[in-house]
Write a protein that binds this DNA or RNA. Structure first.
Length: 199
DNA sequence: AATTTTCTCAACCGCCTTGTG
DNA sequence: ACACAAGGCGGTTGAGAAAAT
């Protein structure tokens, strides 16, 4: 790791919503060079973003195998089961839901499930058995190192299953057909532009 | 039709862990 | 063994969209 703070760059670091152009740069760069070493990636790609920001953008939004759209009842059930088991270990839970990101699951939990827990009247049929885990969310940072290390099934990794009819650059899983097209304006455009720009 | 309220989601922040020199 | 930097994770917030009044 290079320990250079990269001098004045920091003052130029952009924040806030990503532009389409930035998305394209990031996608294009990763398509050609792969992920990893986010700080230098951000620099090399010419993005005035922090490595963290690039990583987040990629993982939560740009990654071609990100599955967007409604959480299915099956997924909801799984989320509740896993949450009951592990608490707020969102990334861990997400690893068992192909194409879903920890951020998405976290949001879903907070907006949908947690709300239902607070209003038992409106509980969906299956959520009755998990009210206990609302208290369990307080696992907070006790996890570090210990608890969640006991990952019985950490081996079963995330197998992208939505890779059909896609146009992805070589070596890339394809963009997923999503249930809701809200974000597709950018993703489709970006991916096709990325293809045009090629390598 | 206009305004207000509620909901959803993308992104940032701070802390912790891990890796490297 | 220690210090530093980067990566990763969970919590929180703000903006925009949708729904309700």
């Amino acid at each position: 790791m290079d320990k250079k703070p990269c001098n004045s760059q920091e003052s130029e670091v952009r924040k806030g919503p990503w532009t389409m152009e930035e998305d394209m740069i990031l996608i294009n760069y990763i398509a050609n060079h792969g992920e990893g070493v986010w700080n230098s990636l951000a620099r090399s790609a010419g993005l005035n973003r922090t490595g963290k920001s690039c990583r987040l953008r990629w993982l939560n939004y740009l990654r071609p195998d990100v599955r967007r759209g409604n959480i299915t009842p099956e997924e909801e059930l799984l989320i509740m089961e896993l949450h009951a088991k592990w608490g707020n270990r969102w990334s861990k839970i997400a690893s068992h839901l192909p194409g879903r990101t920890d951020n998405e699951i976290k949001n879903y939990w907070r907006t949908k499930i947690q709300k239902n827990i607070k209003q038992p009247d409106s509980l969906p049929s299956q959520s009755t058995d998990q009210t206990h885990c609302s208290g369990g969310t307080s696992t907070s940072h006790t996890m570090s190192g210990g608890g969640c290390g006991a990952d019985q099934d950490g081996t079963e990794n995330y197998s992208p299953m939505y890779t059909e009819n896609n146009l992805a650059p070589e070596g890339f899983p394809a963009p997923l057909p999503t249930e809701s097209n809200d974000n597709l304006w950018s993703m489709e455009d970006l991916w096709s532009m990325q293809l045009l720009h090629g390598d």
